[in-house]
Design a binder for these strands. Structure first.
Lengths: 346, 346
DNA sequence: TTGTAGGCGTTATCAA
DNA sequence: TTGATAACGCCTACAA
C-alpha cells in the first residue's frame, strides 16, 4: 500500500517538497518550467495528495456542508440542487453529508466541522428538538433550513428558514372546508410524533374549529411507523385500511404529497374516484404531484427560494455579521389541483 | 478557533495522550477507572477528535464508500438504503459520496480512497466509459453497480452488477409488439448519448426488426438536453412536442419510468387517454410507477437484490479473493401495468 | 525561485 | 497499565 507522497515526487524531481507543494496548489513564486516538470511527474506517477493531511494542516477552507437526514426524500432534491449551485457560485466547496436516521446531526456536524475546517453548515430537514446548549457547541455559522418549529422560542435563537407548517396546514384544510367538506379525514403521524406531523395536525384542528366542525378522532388515521411513514407506500396502506372501515368522509387530508399519492391510488383501486368520491389534499408541492393524475391539490413550499434564502443568511453570517440570526418564514402557495372539488349536496 | 485537542484532555486529566487515545478508541489495556475519568472530562469539554488527524495516522479503516453520480435520481434511493444496511451489518462504516456531474468519479474515488483509507468502493450508476488504465489506479476492490455496459469486453475486466439494458429494452418493446402495436414511438436521448440511452435504443431497434417492423426515424423523439434528460419533466415536454406534430403511433416507449410518467400526463392533458389512445411503456421499475394512475408497464430492475449482490461481490474481494471479478447480470422483470393494452383493430 | 524544518492532532511503538 | 516519542503527509514560515 506504499502510496506515493509529496516527498517521493520531490525526490524524483530533485526539488524540495515545498516546490512540489507550490506546484499542486498553484501557489505563486514558482518557476513555470519546474512547475510543468513537476506536474508531469505527478501525472505519470498517479500522485494524489492526501486530503486528510491537507485538512489537518490547513487553518481554514472555503467549504460549506449541508447535512441531510433522510437524503432520499425527494422533497429535498431540488433544494440540494440549489445549494450546490449557490455554494459553488460563491466559490465555496459544497459537501453533502447524509445523517443516519439514528445519528445525531449535531454530533455529525461537530465532527466534520473539525475535520473539514468548515465555514458554515446547513441543517436540512429533520425536525430536531435539540437543546440550545448543544447547538451552541458549533463554532461556525449555521442555518436550520426547512426544519419544523415546535419550539418557536428556541428556534428564534438561531438562523432559520422554513414555512409555518401549522399555518399552511390550516390554510389547506380551510380550503377543503370552503369547498363544503365537513367530514375531512386526516392521514397523520402517530400522536407522539414530534415532527412536522404534529404541526400539520394542529393546523388541521384549528381549521376545523374555525369552520365550526368538531374534531372527530375517528377521522384520524395513523400512518405506519418508521422512517418511511410519510411515503407513498405509507399513504397507500393507511388509506386501504381506512376504506375497509367504510368511513364516512368526503375529503382526505394527507400531510404530505407522497401520502396523498398513495391515497389516490388506494382509492382508485377500490373503485372509487378522486375527486368525485373523495377530495384529496396533500402538502409540500413535490414535482410529481403536478404530474400525477389527478394532479394533487397541495401547499407548495417554495423550495428553491428557501434554499437560496438559506444561503443568503449563511453567507451573511459568514461574511459580516455572525450575530444576525434571522428567522425567515416563507408562505406556502395553495396549488389547486385536480384532486379536490366542491362538495355537491345531494 | 482554539479547538480542544487530545493534548488538552491529557493535561487536564494528568495522563499521557496515549492513555486518552486508548480511552476514546476503546482500546484494551486501560484502567476502567481512568477511562471513566477521561471520558467525563472529554464530555465536559466537548472534545471531538479530529478525523483528519485520525485518518492520516491510521493504517486502515473499515469503511466502504458508495459513489453516486446524480444522487437525487430516485432510482438509486432503494439501492442506497440497501447499501447502508448491508455495509453496517458487516460492521463497516458507510460513506455516501456524491459526484458532481462534471466531476470524474475515478478522480473522486482516488482522493477519498487515500483520505479515508477505504476498504472498498461501489460505483453506482453513471455510465462511464473509463479506460481500464484509469480504473486500475484504484488500489482497493471496487464494483461497478448498475452501470451501462457499452463495452462488454472492458466491463469484464472488473467486477460488476447490472441488467442488460439492451436485452431488457428489447423485451419490453417486443412486448408492445406482441400487443399488436406497429407504430411505436420512442422517447430517447440524443444520438450521441453514450449512456443507457444508447443501449435501450439498440434494444428498441432490435425488437422492431424481430417483429418485422421497419425502424422509422420519425418516431424517435429526442429528450431535452442536460442532466435531467431522463426526468418526468423531460418526458412531459418531449411528449407535448410529439403530440403537436400529430404523429401516427399507437404506443410510446419511454426509456425511463420518469419519462413515461411525464408522457402520460402530457397525453392526458391533450385530452387523449392512456392506454386507450396510446399505450405507454417505461423502464426501471420505480416505486412511483406502481402508484401512478395508470400504473406504468415497465421493466423492473431488481434494485435491492442488485445492491445486495454488489456488496456480496465487494466483500468477497475484500475478504478473500481480490481477483475474482465477477460480472453479474440480473434479469429485469416485465411488469404489465395499466398503461398498455392490446391494440384493437378497427 | 527554492529548500529546510517545524508542526497540524492523532495513533502506534516501545520502554517503563 | 501507562507515557514519551516517532511517525502519518502536507503546508508554511523562514532562510538561502
Amino acid at each position: 500500500m506504499e502510496s506515493v507522497t509529496i516527498k517521493d515526487i520531490a525526490r524524483m524531481c530533485d526539488v524540495g517538497v515545498s516546490t512540489v507543494s507550490r506546484a499542486i496548489n498553484n501557489s505563486p513564486g514558482i518557476n513555470v518550467a519546474t512547475k510543468q516538470r513537476i506536474l508531469k511527474v505527478i501525472e505519470e506517477n498517479n500522485y494524489v495528495p492526501n486530503n486528510s493531511a491537507r485538512n489537518l494542516k490547513r487553518i481554514k477552507s472555503e467549504t460549506i456542508a449541508v447535512l441531510v437526514k433522510g437524503i432520499n426524500n425527494s422533497f429535498f432534491s431540488p433544494m440540494i440542487t440549489e445549494f450546490e449551485k449557490g455554494i459553488q457560485d460563491e466559490q465555496y466547496t459544497f459537501i453533502l453529508q447524509r445523517v443516519d436516521q439514528n445519528q445525531d446531526e449535531i454530533d455529525v456536524a461537530l465532527e466534520i466541522e473539525k475535520e473539514k475546517k468548515l465555514k458554515g453548515i446547513v441543517f436540512l430537514g429533520g425536525y430536531f428538538s435539540h437543546s440550545k446548549e448543544k447547538l451552541n457547541k458549533l463554532k461556525v455559522p449555521f442555518v436550520l433550513s426547512t426544519i419544523g418549529m415546535q419550539d418557536i422560542e428556541l428556534h428564534k435563537e438561531f438562523a432559520s428558514v422554513a414555512v409555518d407548517d401549522e399555518m399552511e396546514s390550516f390554510k389547506i384544510v380551510d380550503y377543503l372546508c370552503s369547498l363544503g367538506h365537513k367530514k375531512i379525514a386526516i392521514l397523520a403521524a402517530s400522536e407522539d410524533d414530534e415532527s412536522i406531523g404534529k404541526l400539520r395536525m394542529l393546523g388541521y384542528k384549528r381549521a376545523l374549529k374555525k369552520n365550526g366542525i368538531e374534531f372527530d378522532k375517528n377521522l384520524v388515521f395513523e400512518l405506519i411507523e418508521g422512517n418511511d411513514r410519510y411515503s407513498v407506500k405509507s399513504g397507500y396502506i393507511t388509506t386501504k385500511k381506512m376504506l375497509q372501515l367504510d368511513v364516512q368522509c368526503t375529503a382526505v387530508y394527507a400531510i404530505t404529497d407522497a401520502i396523498a399519492i398513495g391515497a389516490c391510488r388506494a382509492i382508485w383501486e377500490s373503485g372509487k374516484k378522486v375527486p368525485d368520491d373523495y377530495s384529496i389534499a396533500g402538502f409540500d408541492g413535490l414535482e410529481i404531484a403536478r404530474y400525477y393524475i389527478p394532479s394533487i391539490t397541495t401547499i407548495r413550499q417554495p423550495v428553491e427560494e428557501m434554499a437560496r434564502e438559506t444561503l443568503r443568511l449563511l453567507f451573511g453570517m459568514i461574511n459580516n455579521k455572525p450575530n444576525i440570526k434571522d428567522n425567515i418564514i416563507f408562505s406556502g402557495e395553495l396549488i389547486v389541483g385536480e384532486s379536490t372539488k366542491r362538495l355537491e349536496l345531494d
